[in-house]
């Protein structure tokens, strides 16, 4: 099963390397990892999507908690949370295809952020399923480049 782990980490040099190193050394399987500053510039939030059974997840949580720069670890998979992923996607869009591509994008509320002679770049945020659905629909047109931030998540109040 996949779990969403949310961790608060002190912004110390090496902190991220320590966490990534821990995952590789222990053979944990990271699907996605996103890091960014929180409201407190000395603290970052790490959102990690990790797969494995309950025993592995228990180790992941405990090993993360043991890292001295880590302030808090939560497995939020079972709670109610908001998750988002941000994607930039450049798709090939010859003149004739543009209207239908933009029509699909509108349904997804993807934003056009760049328009070239042969390509369009979209920005899309949302939960993972939405992003994946959009990617699948763009595929037939020819995806040129794609970048995703990885998922971030915060508990609802």
């Amino acid at each position: 099963m996949r779990h969403i782990i949310s961790a608060l980490v002190e912004n110390k040099p090496g902190a991220l390397a320590r966490i990534v190193g821990l995952f590789s050394a222990r053979g944990f399987n990271i699907e996605s990892l996103a890091v960014g500053e929180t409201e407190n510039s000395e603290v970052s939030r790490l959102t990690i999507i990790v797969g494995g059974d309950e025993a592995i997840l228990e180790q992941v949580r405990k090993q993360l908690g043991k890292v001295i720069d880590v302030l808090k670890v939560q497995d939020i998979s079972d709670d109610s949370f908001v998750e988002r992923d941000l994607m930039l996607l450049k798709v090939s869009a010859k003149a004739g295809k543009r209207p239908e591509i933009i029509e699909i994008a509108n349904v997804f509320r993807a934003k056009v952020v760049d328009l070239g002679e042969k390509t369009i770049m979209f920005e899309l945020t949302g939960p993972e399923e939405k992003i994946n659905a959009f990617i699948n629909l763009m595929r037939p047109y020819g995806i040129k480049e794609l970048a995703r931030t990885g998922r971030i998540a915060v508990l609802r109040s």
């Binding site: 040099p13 090496g14 390397a17 320590r18 001295i68």
Partner: peptide
């Protein structure tokens, strides 16, 4: 050295 010793220390510091 902080890179090399990260997995074999309880913790390490580079004084910058």
């Amino acid at each position: 050295i902080t890179g090399i010793t990260r997995p074999i220390t309880k913790h390490n510091f580079l004084v910058s």
